[in-house]
């Protein structure tokens, strides 16, 4: 099973993308998509050294919904900041110490931080222990760091690095 399907999640995503691209779920498209979803991970195996293990899929789903909700609400805040008082903002860098280990978890965290408006992940230190985050408007740097750690990092750690 492992040998035939080295990356089941990747296969599932590939099948979904194929069906969306064709915009149909006919039997023929399922067959072709299934074939691609099986063959592509098999042929590109050397590119994917680590296997993704999602420990708690439900928590992951909750996390994704939380991120979606945050994107919408924070966008409204940022829109107000841009339109009302762009010159009185206090942009600042904050340094977030990371407790995540795996590269996948760190890259997901970086993307989530950059996607939620008001913060952009600017640089990861070379030993992967610190993340520089640029924020559009900060009043309390420590509160921001604590929020990022508790809101985004903690669930990611639980889902992708259960130990």
């Amino acid at each position: 099973m492992r040998r035939l399907f080295p990356h089941p999640w990747l296969s599932l995503v590939l099948l979904l993308i194929w069906l969306l691209l064709q915009n149909s779920v006919s039997f023929a498209q399922l067959l072709v998509g299934g074939l691609f979803a099986w063959l592509i991970p098999l042929f590109t195996r050397p590119f994917w050294p680590e296997t993704v293990v999602v420990a708690r899929p439900l928590l992951m789903l909750r996390f994704l919904l939380l991120v979606l909700y945050d994107i919408v609400t924070a966008n409204i805040t940022v829109a107000r900041q841009i339109l009302v008082r762009p010159r009185q903002l206090h942009p600042a860098f904050v340094v977030v110490p990371l407790s995540l280990q795996s590269e996948l978890a760190i890259s997901i965290l970086t993307n989530v931080i950059s996607l939620t408006p008001g913060t952009v992940a600017a640089r990861l230190s070379q030993d992967h222990t610190e993340l520089w985050v640029h924020a559009l408007h900060v009043e309390d740097t420590e509160a921001l760091v604590a929020e990022i750690k508790q809101r985004y990092e903690a669930p990611l750690k639980e889902v992708l690095e259960p130990c």
Partner: peptide, 18 residues
């Protein structure tokens, strides 16, 4: 409208995406 580059970065990448 935003005054410096790193602030400007916030506006288009996210508002526009949404």
């Amino acid at each position: 409208r935003l005054p410096d580059f790193l602030s400007r970065l916030h506006a288009p990448t996210k508002s526009t995406t949404l």
